[in-house]
Computed example of a mutant assay.
Amino acid sequence: MSLAKYHANSVIKKFSIKDLPVDPYRISKEMEIEVVEDDCEGYTGMLLVVAGQALISVKSSIREYPKKRFTVAHEMGHFSIPEHITEERYFFQCTDKDLNTFDKKGGREAEANEFAAELLMPEDIFKEKIRLKDLSYNLLQDLTSEFETSLTATGIRFSELSGDYALVCSENSCIKWLIKGDNFPFYVRGEGKLANESIAIEFFRGKKLPKSFETVPAFAWLDDYKLKGDMDVQELSIPLPYYDQVLSFLYMEPREEDEDDEYLEELDGYPRFKK
Rank of each mutant, 00 (worst) to 15 (best):
E118R: 02
E118Y: 06
L119S: 02
L119Y: 07
L120P: 06
M121C: 12
P122S: 10
P122G: 09
P122K: 09
P122Y: 11
E123G: 05
E123R: 14
I125M: 09
I125E: 08
F126N: 04
F126H: 03
K127V: 00
K127S: 10
K127Q: 14
E128L: 10
E128S: 13
K129V: 00
I130E: 09
I130C: 09
I130P: 11
I130D: 07
R131H: 13
L132K: 15
L132D: 14
K133F: 09
S136F: 08
S136R: 09
S136A: 06
Y137M: 01
N138G: 00
N138L: 13
L139C: 06
L139M: 07
L143C: 07
L143R: 04
T144D: 05
T144H: 01
S145I: 05
S145E: 12
E146I: 13
F147L: 06
E148S: 12
S150E: 12
S150K: 07
S150D: 12
A153E: 15
A153I: 11
T154I: 03
T154S: 13
G155W: 09
G155N: 08
G155L: 12
I156C: 07
R157P: 01
R157H: 03
R157C: 08
F158V: 10
F158N: 02
F158K: 02
